[in-house]
Nucleic acid binder design. Structure first.
Lengths: 207, 207
DNA sequence: CAAGGTTTTCGCCTTTCGGTCGAAAACGTG
DNA sequence: CACGTTTTCGACCGAAAGGCGAAAACCTTG
């Protein structure tokens, strides 16, 4: 989500939401406050620090040190945004101000990595979803196609997925109605990565 | 590596090396400069941003925003450090100044995670090492025992390990002399994590 | 120098995990 | 009711990882 700068420098270029750090808040409280001007903060399903960008010449004039965040909203949210603000596909960004394109790239890479080795998927999905919808989300975020069969098995084996029992309405072209799933509550925050070298004789599946 | 504060606030408590950001450097250049006063920077085998710590009351007086870094040196380096500076086991830290204990915990968690799903191990190991020495390093960093057999196999299969041909001198209690290994050059920087959901029909093993 | 202790290495086996494929299920439509 | 469409599920396979124990290669000691 970018907003279009009205004034120089870099007028008319698109930039990430953000602003100065208040004296009584930490950086996360600050970005949530800044974001509240653009979108309802309660819709944020995940917020994490990305990196500090601090090159002396990253903005004209006096140095500005930026703490970049990665913020996610579920795919079904369509928040009302101000007129100077719009969503852009991360693969086809318009001309951006300052180093904001690099920041977006970093965010995209972080998301793709964490999708694979953590349970971050819950932050992208709506409360209930079909496997094929989830497959589309993962494919879009990762940048390559994943198999629905495999995705369901991997997430299920990790104990993240739970059928709701209901089925989704069928599409205009027919087909078998898809079962609805949800991420199991209690797993709706980022947990430890799924380690490859595990402690002896203990899997990280059970509660 | 901590140094002992001489003055208030928090006199005599141990704190992480660091200092103010200069106007002509970014945060990584700054921490390398600060660290150079304590230890030869060329010994650093890995440096990465950890997180920003910015709670308004994290230090007394005016707010100080800190960008924390994780820095690693190979286990065989024993750098000369100033008299007010010393190494401490991360599991048994002395009383620390400010929020530096929390920073250390975060660093330790980051290290443990990345050891498993990236090739970060090279940053901890000396240029040449035996499998059991490497096993000790991994066990210490991860906090649980790993099997030497499995560690060697996992790292080998990822194409990270290479035998030097030489063997290490035997210990005081005898035993078969251990073969020496090195991390293959070209893999001596952190590469992409080993993704679980891979793109179709392409493994991340080949060069 | 043979016996026994110690440490490393290696092969074999089992389990788990991820990838792939195709058949079957469950809907629409003509 | 045949047919297209989409989802679901089971089967199979290879690769990855964990576990175990025998063999190898050194030491010391009697």
């Amino acid at each position: 989500m970018l907003w279009q700068r009205a004034r120089e420098p870099h007028a008319h270029r698109w930039s990430l939401p953000g602003g100065g750090l208040g004296s009584e808040e930490d950086v996360e409280a600050s970005i949530r406050r800044q974001l509240a001007e653009k979108v309802d903060v309660r819709q944020l399903s995940h917020v994490e620090q990305l990196a500090v960008f601090s090159a002396p010449d990253r903005v004209p004039g006096p140095r500005v040190v930026a703490t970049a965040f990665l913020g996610l909203v579920p795919s079904d949210t369509d928040p009302v945004v101000p007129s100077d603000t719009a969503w852009h596909p991360v693969d086809a960004l318009p001309p951006t101000a300052f180093d904001h394109e690099a920041i977006c790239r970093r965010a995209r890479n972080r998301l793709a990595s964490k999708l694979s080795y953590t349970n971050l998927g819950f932050a992208l999905a709506p409360p209930e979803f079909t496997i094929s919808a989830l497959r589309s989300l993962y494919s879009a975020a990762l940048g390559y196609e994943v198999s629905a069969t495999n995705l369901q098995r991997v997430l299920s084996r990790r104990g993240l997925l739970e059928p709701t029992g209901a089925v989704a309405p069928v599409g205009p072209s027919g087909g078998r109605p898809a079962a609805l799933f949800r991420f199991v509550s209690g797993q709706m925050r980022v947990t430890d990565p799924f380690a490859v070298l595990r402690p002896p004789s203990s899997r990280n599946l059970g509660t």
